[in-house]
Structure formats: C-alpha cells, structure tokens
Amino acid sequence: MKKNEKMVWLAIGVSFTILYILKYGFQGFLQQLVNGLQLGSLYALIALGYTMVYGIIKLINFAHGDLFMFGAYISAFVGAYLAGRGLIGLAFIPAMLLSMIVTAVLGMSIEKVAYKPLRNKPRLSVLITALGVSLFLENFFALPAEKVFFPFNKIVFGPNMLSFPKLIDDRIFNFAGISISMVKSIDFFVAILLMIILELIVKKTRIGKAMRAVSFNREAAYLMGIDVNFIIMVTFGIGTSLASAAGTLYALTFCCLDNPFMGIWPGMKAFIAAVLGGIGNIPGAMLGGFLMGIIETYASSINPQLGDVSAFSLLIIVLIFKPAGLMGKFEIEKV
C-alpha cells in the first residue's frame, strides 16, 4: 500500500471511531470493542480453515461453514452426556476436543471422496462440488429422524432448535464500567491458544514445513518425497478441527443451535474475513477475522440490520482497493 493511501484509511478509521465515541460514549466504544474481539476470535478460527485449504489446493471450501455447524452439534451431544453425569465447568474441553477429532475425520473424508478425484480437473468443477457438499451436509443433517431409515436416523440432527447444555455458569465481571462475560473471555483465550498452536505447527514442525511447501509448489514438493495427498488431507483435518472448535465456542456462548443451516452465515463471514486478510495467508486470516468481528459488532450496535451489510461492504471496498486482501500478494490467476 502506498503511504498516503494508508493515511487515508487511517483517517477514515479514526473519524469513524471519533463519531462513534461522540454518539455512544467512550465506555460504549470499549464495550463493543470487547464484544467485537470475542466475535472476531470465532471468525478468525473459521477463517483459518478456509485460508489453509485455499492455500494448499486453491479451493474455496464452501462446506467449511457446515463443518463448523457439525462441530457445534457434536460438542452439544458430548456436552449433554457429560452434563448428564454432573460434569460441568472444564468439561467443555473434552467436548471440544472430541468434536474436533470427529469433525476432522468428516472433513478429511469429504476431501477424499469429493475433492481428491477432481484434483487435476478444472478448478471450477471442484468449486461446484464443494457447493454440492455444503448443500448435502445442511439438508442431510436437517432431516427429521422419523423420516429417515436406519441407520441414518441415529446420526441426523433434525430441523429443530437444540439447546446446548449449560456447561459453564456464566458470570459477568464489571471492569471500569465495561461488562465482560466469562464465557466470552473463554472464547477469546481458547481461540488465541489454538492460533498459537497452529502457528507452531505450521512454522516449526516437519508437517508444517511440508504444508507450506505443497502450497507453494505441489510438483516440487513431490520431488522432495513429500506425500502430497497425505499433507492435503492433514491440512483439511487441521482446518476442519479449528472450525469445529469455533462451533463449540459458539454453542457455549449462545446456548442453542438453531438448525443445521446455522453454519451458513458464520461461514460466509469467516470466508470474507479470510479474503479480507488475503486468502491463503494464515496471519491474514486471523487479522481479517478480528477486523470483521469488530466492525460487524460496531455496525450492528448502530442498527442490527447493518451487521451483514457492513461485512459485505467491507469486503467490496477492500477488494476494489486492495484486491489481494490486506496481507496477500497479488497474483494473476486463470480460472
């Protein structure tokens, strides 16, 4: 970005901030910042999966939001089991881990069945397949159990609202006039912890190095003796488990899961967050996620309807002025 361009953006940001503070006060501003960081941490977790998958096979995995949904449901079932045995509090951790594993398995199976056979086909056919997978996951899991024959009646979630077991007694702390909820802080810190772990995996481990190599040049990675298909599968697994973790945290915060279509919007916004940060770029996804969460929170505090509009407007503005996203490099690509 050119320097004066940066100044323009900064000026716009600062003037919005000042206007906001003038209207809602400084406390209101800080309160929404806290809320925005919490929402943003969920977006960032989901966005990471989008970006990792895109980075490695240049596919916008439209089914990613549905895997977020799947993770939320699995953790709700595990959570209910644990809560039924009187295990609450930190019990959300095993629920989260278990759902991360189950969802990762689902994610990797999807990759194997639906995406891998199309690896050398035109990119758009994989994109359409991903749309199909997304539609399938949503509609299949929304089937009511009584309409489904054995054994599928055991695994569908049904179209109705499911309440998430109250694993954590939420407490609100007041801090200099800003209320901070315990659950929301857990969201934030768990998300940050997962991001640090991810960063360590990608930067420090053998698999992480292989992942970066495959995303840079698949053929050269083969020549290093890297099992490219395995690495792609692992990437799907990791990305999917992060979405699943976001699902657990989401459920923990909002206490209920609307229906199996609940992943569409968070998925969509996380995707925009990934693009915002520069799709394919891991730190970019984190930045984009937080930015998205914060801006959306401010916008919807002004008018609830503005939340969604702001998300898309932000995307359009960024893509027109900085097409590769905030942290991406621009490359011309052929469809």
């Binding site: 083969y222 020549l223 290093m224 003796g225 099992d227 490219v228 298909n229």
Partner: peptide, 8 residues
Amino acid sequence: LPPHKITK
C-alpha cells in the same frame, strides 16, 4: 508408484 515414493 506415486512420485514421492520415487524419491525414496
């Protein structure tokens, strides 16, 4: 044989 096995 997949390409990465050739390296081996």
